[in-house]
Amino acid sequence: QEKTFELKISHWVPASHPLQKSLEDWAAAVEKASGGTIKSRVFPAQQLGKAFDHYDMARDGIADVTYVNPGYQPGRFPIMGAGELPFLMSDAKGGSMGLDAWYRKYAEKEMKDVKFCLAFVHTPSSLHTRTKKVVVPDDIKGMKIRPADATIANFVTQLGGTNVQSSAPEVRDIIERGVADGVFFPAGSLVLFGVDKVTKFHIDAPMYVTTFVFVINKDKYNEMSERQKKAVDDNCNTEAAGRVGEFWGKFEDAGIDKVKAQSGQDVYALTPEQVALWKKASEPLIKTWGDGVRKTGVDPDAALTELRASLAKYNALTP
């Protein structure tokens, strides 16, 4: 006799965001695989808790499955920070699969108080600015930037800029008011939140990605029968990570075309020399990241080499 479950799935983006459908699809797949014994309900838009708390919510059982941005809490998930290193990934689907396959063994250490489900990234994204065209790293000096995550925040600081924090819905407002001069943002979201109305210059290069995970409450998972656990496990793997990453990636990629189609927008690629300058400028980040990781007892050099190999395997390593 199996118990039936009704899982509370919680995320913090609007219900119109592609992630809503990804989570609904995920829930439907689990329900089907469990023979209808695991049902779910998706709670969007911070209805069960604030964005920053979503990891703790799964850990504490406030929700059963949550969507987490580990970069929201600098210092807490140092290993995962590797995924945020600039100019690393070139593709949403492959990047998600490469990251997921690599992170599985570290999740046992770094996210041990939850059942790790999968890791993914949004599409490779870049910097959008209001008045100043940014081409080389030195251009960041003196600028106020809304970073995407803790690693990009470090990058901005290293380049002589300062960070301005805000939630995604406020980005438009702070740029319009000159509180920030630019934002690291994926292009689809740029349009979704109307930030394209207040920015003019858009770098078209795979500068960074933001990492995300789905995590599950451990007690809930442990209560499940073997068949139910398998139903969950079969949807918590690298293929599933690829599906989530690809679906969202397509949405974001469509954004850059929308921006290009608008008059008065300057969407520009970087030359190989400029990319080389950015990569060189971002090297200290690898060291900063490594210092944080070393404290956890993990060898950062080996870990990063593994990540690169994993990304290469899924054709998502930036050349």
Partner: peptide
């Protein structure tokens, strides 16, 4: 206690 244990820091200067 959780904030202490999880090593959460500030964005710019990495203060605990």
């Amino acid at each position: 206690r959780g904030t202490y244990r999880d090593n959460v820091t500030t964005f710019d200067m990495h203060m605990p």
